[in-house]
Amino acid sequence: MSLGFTIVKRLAHMVFVMFGISVLVFLIFFATPGADPAARIAGRNASPQTVALIRKEFGLDKPLPVQYLRMMDRLVIRRDLTSYVNLGEKVVPTIFRAAPVTLSLVFGAAVIWIVFSILVGVLAAAFKDRTLDRLLMILSLIGISIPVFWLGEVVNLVSQGLLHNTWLFSWVPPLGYVPLHRDPALWFKSLVLPWFTLALAFIGIYGRVLRANIVEAMQEDYIRLARAKGLPEAQVLIRHALRCSMIAIFTLFGLDFGALVGGGALLTEVVFGLPGVGYLTYQALTNLDLPMIMATVTYASFFVVSANAMVDILYSVFDPRVRND
């Protein structure tokens, strides 16, 4: 199987899954018995005229497949679906505005958590059963158990309040997002703390998983051969054990990354006032803004699914064993 074929196959698979998700979401909102979708789209306290208007606009008197196609047309092709809660707001462009915020947040955090978890995993494995190992494992356990929301609040309290006027945190800009193209330095500064906050739990999880994988890999026969070659222990660990252990981490990463970009970073976004997709979803849910929910869910599924596809493709590059047959 060639790489090209793998990619095409994955893409086809992806389209299929996304279609399934969109149908599912559509059915949940538009075909739940006993609820009038028009009233729901209109939001609370809408006038009967608005509801009638919506019924016509969305073709709610037509059969379900037609409704679905119309919805998709407005969501994906014409992209003019509007919110009735925030009157006149076009939902798709809103999401496109929010996406860079989420992407900035998640990408940065991902870089941090990968780098640090490799560091933690390798050091812990190298010092297996010694003090450094135990210390790192306890720290990562703490990292995993701290709720991100709480951590974010504390970070804000310290960096924006208590210690804001000391040299330590005086560089921290006020909460909110600054686009990269407007001021790269400020973009960076405003994201540093959110990045670490979001990354912490992942560093803990990945560090522990990686340590376990490396320790297991170190028992393998090929490690013995690597040692028999006369390789220094550090190289044995990094070139042979770590490289083979990364494969498992990779799968995990794809799933987590997709989920975060698709809105899983909601809490971090809310705490740090970052107007990302998670934030948007949060608002849409509190306002019961149906078009917006439809749009964010579709967007989220797109990211989860494409991150998975990406991982599968990269996986076959990383692990030669899955390439043929």
Partner: peptide, 13 residues
């Protein structure tokens, strides 16, 4: 049959 060699460049497959 097994395919071996480059996955990207068909000439090397």
């Amino acid at each position: 049959r097994f395919n071996v060699g480059s996955r990207i460049v068909p000439a090397l497959r």
